[in-house]
Every structure is written in C-alpha cells, then in structure tokens.
Nucleic acid binder design. Structure first.
Lengths: 350, 350
DNA sequence: CCGGGGATTTGCCACGTGGCAAATCCTTCT
DNA sequence: AGAAGGATTTGCCACGTGGCAAATCCCCGG
C-alpha cells in the first residue's frame, strides 16, 4: 500500500491526474472534474466515490493546467520598490489581505525602483502566471506608457507617478496632506515653517512641496522665501542636515525656524535626533511634523505628528480597482484618491 | 493596422500564440519555439524574420502553458507570518534578491502564523504554480509533519520550528545568540541580568531562554533564580512591564537588575523608553541588549546592542537549499544553521 | 408499456508550449 | 557526380484541465 486515506502520504513523485482518480473511482475523467469543481448535478454516490479516490491517491488539481485552460490563475502581482521600507511592507501585507477576500493570491515583486523593471511589469511581467498587477512605480516616466501591455494585462498604478493612458490609478493625497500638516503647524502658532527634504527626489516630493507652499500662502505668513532644507529622504540625512542648519544659524545669528515639516517620517525622526542632541526642545522651541505615519512615529521621543496616508485604504482601493478591471477589461481607466489623516502627537502639540 | 513594430501596441485582447507568429514569419510553429528558446541551430535569417514577427505581433510566451509543459514555473513561494514585522520584511526582500540570482520569482504568502495556513503550504499550497516553498513556520507542531506533500513539493523550513522528517531547514542561532548576549553583559560587569519577554511565546523564546540560562550558568553569577519579566514581544508591553518592574522594585526596596536581555528588539526598545521615562541611565545603571538587530536599533537613544541573526545569510542559505532540492528532489534533507553577530552599541557599553 | 423531460455522465477537444526524432537542406569530400 | 555528415527545420504529441454539447439514465404521467 503506497498511500493511505490518512496519515503520511507516500512520496508522490509522479503527480496524480484527474484520469488517475477517474480510473480508480470507475468514472470518466470528466466526472472527476465535475466533482472537484462542485458541479450541481452529481449524484451523492458518485461524489463520494470520487472523493474517496481523491483522498486515497492524494490528488491535487493542477493550477498550471487550470491556468492554461481558463486563461487566468487567481494570482495578482504587486510590484513595490522595496519591502525594507515600512510603508511598502505594510502596503504589501494589506494588499495580501484584501486580495484574499477576492480569492486572489499575491505575488510580490521587488523592483528596487528600477525603471527597467517597472517597465517590465508594465508590459505584463510574468503575465500569464498572474491575472494583473498593482504597481507602486517610482522610476517610470510618462514616456514609458508605451511599454504598457494595454488591456491585455490589467494594471493598477499606486502612487503619484501618473502615466498618460487608460490606467487605473490610486493616488496618495500628497498635496492635501502636506497642506494639512502646515495648516496644523500654523494653528499651533508656528510662523517660520521650514521644509525638510529635497522636493525633487520624487514625484511625491514635488506634490508635497506644492501643498506646503499652498498652505503657507493661504495662511499668509510668508515673510520671505520659504526655507527648504535639502536632504535625501533618510534618517541619517535628516539628522545631518538639521544639525548643520542649527549650528549654522547659530553662528550666523539667524533665527531658527519654529517648525519643520519633513517630507517623510525618516527625515523627521532624524530631525528629532538632531534636535535632541543639541538640546532644542520639541515642540516648544521647534515643532516637527512628518509624513507617512510609520509605526515608529508613535514611539519616538517625543512621539511624532505625521500625515497618515492610510495604507489600508490604498490597498483596498487598488485591489478593488484591479478586481473590477478583471471583471470588465474594457471599462475606462479610473483614478481614485485615498484619504489621509493627520495624526497629532507631542512633536507638534504641547 | 492593429499593431506597429514600435510605439503603443494596440489592445491585444486576444493573446498571440507561437502559431500566429509562425504564420506571419512563414515558418513552422516549432521554429518559433526554437528561436525563442535560443536553440543553437537556427539560421540568422530565420531568427531575424521570426523576431520581426514577434515584435510586430507583440508575442509573449505563455508562462502558463510553459509551466504545464515543463512541470515547473520558475516561481517559488515564501510563506511568512507577517510582513509588518521588520524581520520578515527584510527576509522577504533578501529572499527575492537571492532567488533572482537563480532566475526564480518569489510569491510571498502571509500566513498570519495561522497553523491551518501553514499546513496548507506544507502540503504544497498553490503547488503547481510554484516549484517549491520557503516557510517561516510559527504555528506548526511536530504532528503536522504528516500534512507535508513529501518529495513532490520541495520545502525549506526557516526558523526554529523543527519538524520531523526529511525537510530541509535553516535554523536561527537562538540559543547561541542569546548566550553570546549574556556573556557580553557579564563582560561589561553586569551581574543581575534579567530576561525580558515571555519565553513560551514561541519556539524561539524557549531557545533564547535556554541560551540565557546556559550563559548565566557558565558565568557562575547566578545568585538566586534568574529573573524573568514576562511580556508579550511588543514594544508596548516591553515598556509597560519594565516600568512596572522599576516602580515595584523601588517600592519593595528590591535592588534593580543591572542589565536586561530582551527576547527581541521591540521589547528592548520598549524597555529603553521606560528607562528613559524614569530617568534610569543606560547603560551605567542598567544595560540593555536585544535580539534581531532591526534597523531601528541603530537609531534608538542610546543605540541598542542586539544579536543580529543575519537575515541575508538565512535568505541565501534557504534559497540555496531549495534550489539544490529542485535539482535533486531525492537528496536527503539538510539542516543548516545561520550565523549571528552581536552588534555592540551604546546601550550596553559605556 | 411508451414518450417526455430533467438529472447525470461522458466524449471530444483546445488551451500554448517544448521534447523528441525524423525530414530536409547544404557543404564538403572522394 | 554521388555520398557522408552536420546544420536546420519540422511534424507529432502530451502536459492536465474545463467548456460544450451529446449521450445516457431515470422517474412519471398517460
């Protein structure tokens, strides 16, 4: 006896097929398919017999063959620049959960923000193994739209990288969020609000800058040109640049800003470190607000106020867009904006 | 004209097949296959003609059909409890990179640590869409080994959850790492080293506890029973429990520990927060060491000494194991232990 | 006992690819 | 010129499944 209905299955090096099950159960292969797929008109007797054979042989339906036959696999791809960035890790997890609700499995691809790879996804990466893809593109430019596979490969773009064409997109409220952060600071009494982080680093930066400028304008507190502290969007750079600014201003006798709006939380956390190092009190001497609301923001000292783009919602919207696209490949492309919340914490209120 | 050799491809709602390309190029379908697969004996002229047809039609080889024909897809699965935990996110990214070197794509599955789901992976989840899997199991018990698909679905277990059977496994140096952490603290002059975190939370906990006890024993500094501060392995709990301990001891007139070895970095970071809050100086009054070496450990105040299990190495080893298993499905199961390093930072050296 | 009609079961075949080995072509050598 | 032998190209077919529609079965009423 090679296998048993229960207990350790034997080494099934040769895959079991429908026809094998059929032979053992004494029915046609097609009937096995009917049983497996839950077809209505199957007598209880046959169903039972087939099921017994399935169990005995350890039969498992071949997703590969099924995918070929049906033209879809139930797998979608999620392409992100990196999983090391908290935001994308959270996004990935949220997407996996949402996808599950639609009986979809997620294949995560890491693009490293590489334009070439993003193009490949655009063109339908491992297309026939996945039914479609979600992509957080950061390297693509508008001209890359031509690499898209079009309707033959459903694609939802996540983020601010807008591509001309019929794509479904879920955008992040960069501009609105940034503006909200600045308005919040103004309400806290801040007047000299500096921006931390190079705006041209990516599309998000440009949009956040715009929100920042708009809000300053609306608040009517612009005294001179806005102060922008250029820095790569990393913790280390945030710390370095802010420390430099503090020392430099001191020497030059310039008045410090009374608030920093950072392009992202990494920068903001670096700023907090620099401020702590030099004994600048937060938020009394200088308030700090970040963007992304990474988990760490809750635990920094002081806890960091941050714009939270609701990864959950982004995941939900993008999966829903993809699913609806799978159901109706011909429908027009849609753009949805996710919401944000300003999580107010001690780094800006005191 | 539906498509063009360059520019935006038309809406190719009907997939292009080898035979379509063949017809346009005026060759047999089989020749197209030869060209695509890089078969040696194809004349330059034919190759060119076929390539032109491929470009014109926008032909893409069907991975689904290919997978069916070849019995493998070039995709492997990675099952982890969650991507929200930094360690697993890092692992996932590292695995993706390593897999790439072997021309493998990674499909990430999130099990939530759910035993049922882990069993499914064990039995070869979406088996025929993936050639094998890596799994960080946390919910499985030894008795679940019977759900394994055996040699028909190559599987590498990552972590400490040992399963009887022929599985390939990559283990984490829990015991050794914990012992090293304690030895380090002893060398720093600490004598009352408390353990932070519930040891029974998972298998890692049991092993780390063992390493801790062994090291205490070896150092011969055990005065009484070792002190174990039970807490869920989260930052919040770490903070709460340590704060409680500090206050409690104070009231009871008990001498504080002079060092904390935390089951993981989250706990350790929570502990640092509690210590800072109560004004306990680190490391002079109390040294702290964590486990996992998450990125944040470098940036905490003070930076956290931590046992670094080398996610990179774990990823490398496990992918290599899987690849070698794919090449030789019959070979015996292997167990490899990854190394660790103790990253010494200011939380324990002063 | 027969025809009708729904319930079950089944045969046939295409999905798109690549392994295999035969067929054909071409060059070179005797 | 004819044959040998490598270079190219090709026909055939199975991989395992599910759509489709035909075949069969079975229960009832007339």
């Amino acid at each position: 006896m090679r296998d048993g209905p229960s207990g350790v299955e034997g080494v099934a090096s040769v895959p079991v097929r429908q026809s094998d099950v059929a032979r053992l159960a004494g029915v046609s292969p097609r009937t096995v398919s009917n049983v497996v797929s839950g077809y209505t008109h199957v007598s209880a007797e046959v169903r039972e017999k087939v099921q017994a054979a399935i169990d005995e042989l350890g039969y498992r339906r071949s997703d590969a063959a099924r995918g070929l036959r049906l033209g879809r696999t139930g797998v979608i791809a999620l392409a992100v620049p990196s999983l090391r960035e908290r935001y994308f890790a959270d996004l990935a997890e949220a997407v996996v959960q949402r996808a599950e609700e639609h009986d979809l499995t997620v294949m995560v691809e890491v693009t490293g923000g590489d334009r070439e790879r993003e193009r490949l996804v655009l063109g339908g990466g491992r297309s026939s193994l996945t039914d479609g893809a979600l992509m957080s593109a950061v390297g693509l430019t508008r001209t890359d739209a031509k690499y898209a596979a079009g309707a033959s490969y459903p694609l939802v773009l996540i983020g601010d990288r807008q591509l001309p064409g019929p794509f479904d997109q879920v955008s992040i409220p960069n501009e609105e969020g940034a503006a909200a952060a600045v308005h919040h600071l103004v309400k806290q009494g801040c007047r000299r609000i500096a921006l931390l982080g190079t705006p041209e680093a990516n599309r998000s930066g440009e949009l956040r800058l715009r929100g920042y400028l708009t809000a300053l304008d609306e608040a009517g507190i612009a005294v001179g040109p806005p102060r922008i502290l250029r820095a790569d969007w990393t913790r280390r750079e945030g710390q370095r640049v802010v420390a430099e600014m503090l020392r430099g201003d001191l020497e030059a006798g310039i008045e410090w800003p009374d608030a920093l709006f950072a392009m992202n939380d990494s920068l903001a956390l670096g700023a907090l470190a620099a401020l702590a190092e030099l004994g600048v009190r937060v938020p009394t001497e200088m308030a700090v607000v970040g963007f992304d609301d990474v988990e760490e923001a809750r635990f920094s000292n002081p806890p960091l106020t941050s714009v939270s783009p609701s990864v959950e919602e982004i995941a939900r919207l993008s999966v829903e867009l993809l699913v609806s696209r799978l159901e109706d490949p011909a429908r027009r492309g849609r753009r949805l904006a996710s919401r944000y919340e300003l999580r107010q914490r001690a780094s800006s209120i005191g």
